[in-house]
Amino acid sequence: MRRDEEGLSEIVRTVARETLAVILVYGLGLAFYGHLTPGGGFPGGVCAACGLVMAVLASGNRSGFVAAIRGRVAALEAFGALGYLGVAALGWTAGQFMQSSLPRGTPFTPEGAPFLVILNLAVLLKVGAGLFAGFAALVAFGREAPPAGGGEGRA
């Protein structure tokens, strides 16, 4: 338990800290260029969640850090869901729900399909935040409150 709160050794923590931004940017790039290259919101979101999971595992759950950020993570997920629905609702201006309504630029560039870019980013937020919230719940499992019904003491 103590080691669980402190996290891993200094070397691992430093490497995790320095690579976290790289992994997050990689996930963001996967989603941002998802309509041009392999990738998209789903792998990008899981990749970002991977980076956050690594950070939590390396730095440990110091002073309830995981429980403290879980609310913000849930807010991010709601933001992603609202973004998806919002862009989908924009389709009404073009005729119907979920219709691609935003203007399109030159093909093979990010601004070639802003509709898809925004949806990909929304999916990234939703998937990444959702999966990380699930992992955070597993990390904090049984730590927040002692179980009421005889959960202690087993061999």
């Binding site: 309509h35 998209g40 998806y84 070639g112 898809l116 990909n120 999916v123």
Partner: peptide, 24 residues
């Protein structure tokens, strides 16, 4: 139709966007 070079993304997010909403 969708402005995407990646046909998988075009299907996931545009042609079958309702599916993705459900999966989310």
């Amino acid at each position: 139709g969708a402005g995407a070079a990646n046909a998988v993304t075009a299907i996931v997010l545009d042609f079958r966007g309702y599916d993705t909403l459900g999966e989310a």
